[in-house]
Design a protein around this nucleic acid. Structure first.
Lengths: 248, 248
DNA sequence: GATTTCACCGATAGTACTATCGGCGAAAGC
DNA sequence: GCTTTCGCCGATAGTACTATCGGTGAAATC
């Protein structure tokens, strides 16, 4: 055995690690409801009271859990988007952009759920942290979309990019959950749909920018180019080529 | 005063109504954490123990809360989609399709949060109900997309429509929350983005169906038409017309 | 090798909420 | 008008978890 860890601080760190790992396992097995100081401590092989040697309270453990994976995931996503940007024609790279978060969510879905929940729970001390984390995903994503050339520095355009980023992020979470529930067995297919959602919205956004540049802007919200397509003839799928009647 | 309600059953029903209303208010004010039998009962003007005269337990109250608004909302959404289908050129009707759920979510956001949470909480007795509700939204939405003529009866296409429906639903929830947080002050703009997301994804889906009909299908997940557009030249917004180079 | 530090322990006080029980009084049934 | 029903009440047993406290022994420090 490689047991008998040497220094005291090493041993403590090891216990801390065991607590974190136990929490993650418990989270996957029983959900947030199963996560109590007692259960985590016992699963890590220490007494319930010793939990507080390592964490101020349960909230702090959850925060650490969120930070651990979050930073790494966000970096991986940005890197994937950078690579996709460099090779716009490589579909596989575009898929990676979504495959990475999809797989991360599937690894520890409960982590996402806690984050989603904490974000809106007034009584949660994780609320600020969750809001900041969500903002990071959103703003990074929006910035990466902007880097694709989809918008100028206009405040309105910037906000819309953020909305698309937020919407696509939410869709990513939803499809990952659907995969876990067995409805969408193929994660690559999920990634394909997400690419479609993202690209489709961005395309219309760009068109609209072009349109409103000519037409000016009504008060408040913006135009949208009228009948962008013809959504109501079932035979449409057969006729091959690009049916993109964009102008009226 | 119109007080002194007559029959006993009327009085009981009134109390039950007051409990439901109190729960909704508490939910908005304090979140799920603030929702206890004691608080709800007190807010409704009865004793904590009397709560159980009306509901088996808190879970049942939550289920009732979810059912009340859910059915009505789903009907309203289907009706809006039917109207949009009848007048494909009327953008305002397409917006309604999303404005209706956006406004409903904003009315009682906590209801959505509970539903999202319960859906994945193994220990929640609401889990089945939440899963069924989510499935209803998804399947209705997917069916309405199919009615637009976006797909044949193919199992794969059907699943993809469902994925788009699920993704767009999730985006709707996310943008509603963003609105509540003050980031997207204009709900109509949210609706516009959702229309864009939905239309964009559907368009690519239809193109792809057309494409794969000619090309057959690789093992497992599907193709996607290579470089569907040119995502990297900032000047692209100026050139007005339809830049839809779909085929290589 | 004596002293200090500290990771861990068991015990326990404290908190918050659930759900049941017996009783009361007014409406309902006859 | 007598009896039954039942919506509501106060009291309380029960449950589950949090967080603290004093003690212990081994590592760390000198």
């Amino acid at each position: 055995m490689t047991s008998t860890p040497r220094s005291r601080s090493e041993a403590k760190d090891l216990t801390r690690r065991r607590l974190i790992r136990a929490a993650l396992t418990l989270l996957d097995e029983e959900g947030e409801a199963g996560l109590t100081t007692g259960k985590v401590a016992r699963a890590a092989g220490i007494a319930q009271s010793s939990f507080y040697v390592h964490f101020k309270d349960m909230q702090e453990l959850l925060r650490v859990l969120g930070e651990e994976g979050g930073d790494r995931l966000r970096r991986a996503m940005r890197e994937a988007r950078r690579r996709a940007r460099e090779a716009p024609d490589d579909l596989e790279r575009h898929r990676d952009t979504f495959r990475i978060p999809l797989e991360a969510i599937c690894r520890h879905p409960e982590l996402l759920r806690i984050q989603l929940r904490a974000r809106h729970d007034p009584s949660s001390s994780l609320r600020d942290f969750a809001a900041r984390t969500a903002a990071a995903y959103r703003e990074h994503h929006a910035a990466d979309l902007a880097a694709l050339g989809y918008t100028a520095g206009d405040e309105r355009d910037r906000r819309r990019l953020e909305m698309i980023a937020e919407g696509v992020n939410a869709a990513t979470n939803a499809l990952a959950m659907g995969h876990l529930e067995g409805r969408y067995p193929d994660l690559d297919e999920c990634a394909d749909i997400l690419v479609a959602l993202s690209r489709g919205a961005l395309r219309l956004l760009r068109h609209e920018s072009a349109g409103t540049a000519q037409r000016g802007e009504g008060p408040g919200h913006a135009g949208f180019d009228g009948p962008a397509e013809e959504p109501a003839h079932p035979g449409g799928a057969q006729q091959g080529g690009g049916d993109d009647a964009q102008q009226e």
